[in-house]
Design a protein around this nucleic acid. Structure first.
Length: 646
RNA sequence: GCUGCUGUAGCUCAGUGGUAGAGCGCACCCUUGGUAAGGGUGAGGCCGGGAGUUCAAUUCUCCCCAGCAGCACCA
């Protein structure tokens, strides 16, 4: 038992027997049992001496079971309502569950209330979940005859050694590893079907498109309500919505996936660029600028032409025809240029100019590199996934013995910057060699180990994502979440032994011989666009003073004090701040409201008494309170407060 | 790119087989008002684009385009 006590039962006792033996009330709320650290059904007979703990419905561990059971109930409901629909898989996920179905006509949201109603009936029925072990071939035959081709395929692909278990709830059954709660009743009523979407069978875009139904499920109605409320709140933070409301930027079909930065948005952009430039300069980088359009030959050398072309914008290197009614190109273009999707080849070109000595290394080259990638239409998403973006890119050319130091320095720099930006909510990944790649396995081993060492050295925890690396090298990634829980890669460090070889980029070593440098590809924000998008969501639009497009609104109560207000405005302006002067013929409440909804961090309210006493009334965003202060002191304090963190 | 949904005023959204409405915003007028919406008047729409059905289409059907959600792909 979890409390360290030991209990004795005859062989074959079940979890439910034990729960009943302990107390009726425990039995009532028990839903599963952990046997030797493995979650099992309460009905599973226990044959040997084991350690157990019983899971009750009020524990956190119950959520996954509730959601998984709810998915089964969903599948039963769907098959009851829509005969002929094939079932596939239906796992529990963060905050809920889904089930993928195959059906000629996909489900629409209109179907959901009906399905949900049926689910409630099934739950009310309270059929017990019963587990059966089936013979593999029998199971395949059974599902095939039933017309469940997807289930049959699943079983066929299970290893021979795997026990095939079937879970029944009343008449309905499903292939499932389990475990499940005693009856459908335990699912409860705190669930809701949320949305429908397409999803590829087995995540493969070459396979069938299935119809996925998403749902959320919780232990209590309160939890469900809280979750739904949280979703609403998250939507309010959506950077696309705030970008429009705050007049920061817009997107237009005429430039799909590329951002039109408005004056206010571009102010944030410029502040970020200036900040990073400063930090990177302090970290001994040199800044460069490289061409936007480069020849096919260069991309062939780098490998992009072979491995990355479908993501590139390729431009024929031909003079277009301007005669009306004629084709744009009189003949099939033979020579091509491409808009750069990455800056690395151009940086290698700079490295290659002149002869480098081992004493010159490391060379840390930085660029705010504007890149274009031909992203799939469906991938575009506000600022978080665009076709044109500016990376805070950098490439470190170093010797092998410098990799660890450089990787560590990069991680430290990133952590420092994320801290400055009040950004703590991220996790690390190590993405290893993908199938489509360049370079020998030996070099990949070295590169992957290099990253591991650096992270271990710093004591950073990371998840390994097998096969997710770039085609030229493994990646260390900083992953952050947006307002609605979607995850986005930002900072990245990639170790690359390949590109210098492909470009014949060398340095002269201590031994007088030529050697290939190692190239570390790295970005800290990732891209300015994405990072700003995530920051807008992170701060819910209420950016820190140094980043806020408008830092202070000076709002007058009466036109009699316009001159006094004008003077304050000029003082702030003269000190590099971004104030606005609001002397409009409106009531002060109106002005306060407008600037508050506009997320202006500070409002100076100026009336007669302020002008007479040489003070300002200060109101901060998110606060109802006001503070009166001597005008000179207020201006001075605000200027100090608005200084960037460098 | 795939599946589904959506596309009406600058924004948020109603609505109808007989070519349109609200609130906010905008312009003008009145109002000089003390910390989240003062009042009035007015301008503003090829109802995403194209085809079809119909006497008649913003409304129904089809095709395109775009946006959104998810999938796949990725900074």
């Amino acid at each position: 038992m979890p409390d360290g006590n030991t209990r004795s039962y005859t062989s074959g006792v079940t979890g439910m027997d034990i729960a009943n033996d302990i107390s009726k009330s425990l039995a009532k709320k028990s839903i599963a049992i952990v046997i030797n650290e493995k979650e099992c059904d309460l009905s599973l007979p226990i044959e040997n001496d084991v350690s157990i703990s019983i899971i009750t419905r009020d524990q956190d561990a119950a959520l996954e079971l509730i959601r998984h059971d709810c998915a089964h109930v969903l599948a039963e409901a769907v098959q009851e309502l829509f005969p002929g629909t094939q079932v596939t898989i239906g796992p529990s996920i963060e905050n809920g569950f889904y089930y993928d179905f195959y059906r000629e006509t996909p489900f629409t949201i209109e179907d959901l209330p009906k399905i949900e109603k049926k689910m409630r009936q099934i739950i009310e029925r309270g059929n017990p979940f019963t587990r059966e072990v089936w013979d593999r071939n029998e199971a395949i035959k059974f599902f095939k005859e039933k017309g469940e081709a997807f289930k049959a395929e699943l079983i066929e692909d299970l290893p021979e050694s795997e026990t095939i278990t079937i879970y029944k709830q009343g008449e309905w059954l499903d292939l499932c590893r389990g475990p499940h709660m005693p009856t459908t009743k335990q699912v409860g009523t705190a669930f809701k079907l949320m949305k429908v979407a397409g999803a590829y069978w087995r995540g493969d875009s070459n396979r069938e498109m299935l119809s996925r139904i998403y749902g959320t499920a919780w232990r209590t109605q309160e939890e469900l309500d809280a979750y739904l409320h949280q979703l609403e709140e998250a939507e309010k933070r959506d950077h696309r919505k705030l970008g429009r409301e705050m007049d920061l930027f817009h997107f237009d079909p005429k430039a799909q996936g590329s951002c039109f930065w408005h004056p206010k948005g571009f102010t944030i952009y410029n502040q970020m660029e200036t900040y990073i430039r400063r930090r990177v300069n302090d970290a001994e980088y040199v800044e460069v600028k490289t061409p936007q359009l480069m020849d096919q030959k260069l991309w062939e050398t780098s490998g992009h032409w072979q491995k990355y072309r479908e993501d590139m914008f390729v431009v024929p290197d031909v003079t277009p025809n301007t005669e009306e009614g004629e084709p744009i190109f009189k003949e099939e273009p033979k020579d091509f240029m491409a808009l750069k999707p990455m800056n690395c080849p151009a940086h290698v070109e700079i490295f290659k100019q002149g002869i480098k000595s081992y004493k010159d290394l490391p060379i840390r080259m930085a660029e705010f590199g504007c890149c274009h990638r031909n992203e799939a239409h469906g991938a575009l998403h506000g600022l978080l996934r665009v076709r044109q973006f500016t990376q805070d890119d950098g490439h470190i050319f170093c010797r092998e013995d410098q990799i660890l130091d450089e990787a560590v320095a990069f991680c430290e720099l990133t952590q420092k910057i994320y801290k400055d930006l009040d950004f703590e909510d991220y996790y690390l990944t190590l993405e290893t060699r993908p199938e489509e790649r360049i370079g020998s396995d030996e070099l990949w081993d070295k590169a992957e180990n290099g990253l591991k060492q650096a992270m271990d050295h710093l004591g950073l925890k990371y998840e390994i994502a097998e096969g997710d690396g770039a085609f030229y090298g493994p990646k260390l990634g900083f992953i952050v979440k947006d307002a609605i829980g979607r995850e986005w890669g930002c900072a990245t460090l990639q170790i690359d032994f390949n590109l210098p070889r492909r470009f014949e980029a060398t340095y002269i070593g201590e031994d007088g011989e030529k050697h290939y440098p190692v190239m570390l590809h790295r970005a800290i924000l990732g891209t300015l666009e994405r990072f700003i998008g995530i920051m807008i969501e992170h701060f819910a639009g209420k950016l820190p003073l140094w980043l806020a497009p408008t830092q202070c609104a000076i709002a007058t109560i009466t036109s009699e004090v316009d001159d006094y207000a004008q003077n304050l405005y000029e003082q702030l302006k003269a000190n590099g701040m971004r104030p606005i002067l609001d002397t409009r013929n409106e009531k002060i409440s109106y002005k306060v409201r407008e600037h508050s909804t506009g997320k202006v961090p500070v409002i100076f309210v100026i009336g007669k008494s302020e002008a007479e006493e040489n003070t300002v009334s200060i109101r901060r965003l998110g606060s109802q309170k006001t503070e009166s202060m001597n005008a000179e002191e207020a201006v001075k304090a605000l200027i100090e407060e608005a200084k960037p963190p460098y």
